[in-house]
Amino acid sequence: MLKRLSSREVLINLASEWEAALAREWLDAIRSITSAVTLQALIAELERGNLDAAMRLLNIDADRFARFEAGILSAYNAGGIATVGSMPALRDPSGARVNFTWGVRNLPAEQAMRQHAASLVDDLVGEQLTVARSVLVDGLSRGQNPRQTALGLVGRVNRRSGFREGGVLGLTPSSVQTLDKIYGGLRAGDAQAMRDYLGYQLRDKRFDGHVHRALEQGGSVPAEAVDRIVTAYSNRALKYRADNLALTETNIALAKAKTDAFQQQIDAGKLDAQDLTKTWQRTVSRAPRDGHLAMVGKTIPFGEMFTLPSGHQCTGPHDPNLPASEIVNCKCLLELSVDFTAQALRKYRARTGG
């Protein structure tokens, strides 16, 4: 006999599925931008010093991330369906079974999730425009070869995959700074920069020999090796960024769906808020937040807010209203419990007058 999955197990499986899907959509969005760039046209505008025209050629806009944005909403909808599907059986005072349902049309909750996804994409587009402009301005100000500047931004075409790789589009500003430090430090033979590089978790260790030899000989890393090192690091940093975004946004979508699904049952009169509680739980994490560890096991009524040690209030883990410092890479869970016995007893007494 197949084991029936618990609500927690169902949502964990969903999280894994949607994390992979959202990471893929993010990477596809970035590839759609870099693959569409006509390199010679970009180089020509840089040679003219026409920064605005060069930026327009990149076509970085929200439409590029439409599938990523839609994926967040789909994860939210899937989470709501899964939540109501795993709710225990309940009967009304007449003895008829209560059917828990998930509705997503024209709901304030769904609109809030839609606004969150749209705002996220707007922020990401703004970030990438800033990154691109910064790279182009830096290249122009330093008198860098326009072709080198363009390739540093969008990357070179990998003949096997057909995709550009090794550029900085899609990366966070801090990752772009790290890449610049790696490139400059290894080319210049900066011993401290090379030692720092050997401590980066995202580096490709296959190239460590080049760096070790440069340190031992007191020289720089060969230019060809530096290009390969930077390309490998850029690829890994982009994948890491995609995975982090996917993890965070999947958890936000599923956590909100879970809470909204229960709220819908309350609004429909199928559950009573006084019978619901929520408990802060956690899963294994490599770097758990001390503030979140302090919340583990705390139980409050469904309609109340948790107060974190930082002072922030929230509906639970992954509340989109929390700052990034509280939600990025967070793997905590919210457990919702219904006292069905109390609810059934109250309805029985209402029916019998007892």
Rank of each mutant, 00 (worst) to 15 (best):
S285L: 05
Q281W: 07
R213E: 11
A117C: 06
P323H: 03
L293E: 14
V98H: 03
A82K: 08
A62D: 14
N244Y: 06
F302I: 02
I327F: 11
L238K: 03
R133L: 05
V10R: 11
E216V: 09
Q265P: 00
F262T: 00
A41P: 03
V176W: 00
L27K: 09
N77E: 15
D138W: 06
A273T: 04
E69W: 07
S119Y: 10
G162N: 12
A89P: 04
E45A: 13
A294D: 09
A287N: 14
A70Y: 10
M1Q: 14
E47R: 15
K239G: 11
R236N: 15
F65L: 07
F302Q: 00
Y233I: 09
N251W: 05
L334N: 01
G311M: 06
S94L: 09
I182M: 04
R97M: 13
T341I: 08
Q343W: 00
V221C: 07
R351W: 11
P93A: 08
L215M: 12
E25S: 10
Q128D: 06
V137Y: 12
F306S: 03
P288Y: 00
L27P: 01
Q217V: 07
A36D: 15
R351Q: 14
E127I: 10
P93E: 09
I12C: 05
S86E: 15
N99V: 12
E224C: 05
T279D: 02
R8L: 08
S7I: 02
E110R: 15
N321K: 14
D61C: 08
G155K: 08
V125F: 08
S337D: 13
V296L: 07
S86C: 05
L140R: 12
